[in-house]
Design a protein around this nucleic acid. Structure first.
Length: 201
DNA sequence: ATCAAGATTACCT
DNA sequence: GGTAATCTTGATA
């Protein structure tokens, strides 16, 4: 087995749709001391800094979205619907306001912890495993990501993403983004074809 | 100050 | 397929 290495800042400092597609197949890791949770990123969405009406950054910087306008390679966490958190990776140059929403993860390590966070029990059925991280708010609940993690540097040791081989273009499916009412013509949602941990076909 | 919408989810028929 | 839950945020006055 090869040495896993954290994605460098240059990885994130690129055009948001390229980063989004490249993030598929990479390993998302959350570490708390000796506790490790991880999984394969299988579904993402790109939100651009310019000309994207569905993006939080569309109307300029606010207190809520300021991390989105910060440096690439940091985590943008927001609260929505009065009860859910969603996690994004900031991309591109500082001040641009682009980010990739992580929508689904195939669990690998720390599944009993992920399960406890989501379902308040360690042993789960196959159905519950599929349902563990197949949605942006489910990921945050499973990985214990809240307001506190907003702005975290992905070069650090608490939350980071490990490199892994690129998913070939032939295995990447593009669709409209989920749950938005503007810019629905843009096919900026990407997921790994035939992966059972994707949120929706 | 007020208010409507929201990058969702779980549970219902 | 439909909708309640739940509250922060940003826009408007």
């Amino acid at each position: 087995m090869s040495n896993p290495v954290k994605l460098p800042i240059e990885f994130y400092n690129r055009e948001v749709k390229s980063v989004a597609k490249s993030l598929l197949g990479k390993i998302f890791v959350r570490r708390n001391d000796d506790l490790v949770m991880s999984g394969i990123i299988v579904e993402v969405e790109a939100y651009n800094g310019k000309g994207d009406e569905a993006s939080h950054s569309f109307n300029g910087m606010t207190k809520r979205n300021e991390i989105m306008f910060g440096r690439a390679g940091h985590l943008y966490v927001y609260f929505t619907y009065g009860m859910h958190f969603c996690a994004n990776v900031v991309t591109g140059k500082e001040g641009f306001g682009a980010a990739v929403l992580i929508r689904a993860i195939e669990p690998i390590d720390g599944i009993s912890t992920l399960a406890k966070n989501r379902f308040f029990k360690e042993n789960i059925s196959h159905k519950e495993l599929i349902n563990l991280c197949n949605g942006p708010a489910k990921i945050c609940q499973a990985f214990s990501i809240i307001r506190e993690q907003n702005g975290i540097n992905l070069s650090g040791d608490e939350i980071y993403i490990l490199d892994a081989p690129e998913i070939p273009t032939s295995k990447i499916v593009s669709t409209p983004r989920i749950g938005i009412k503007k810019s629905i013509d843009l096919l900026w949602r990407y997921y790994i074809k035939d992966n059972p941990f994707v949120s929706k076909k």
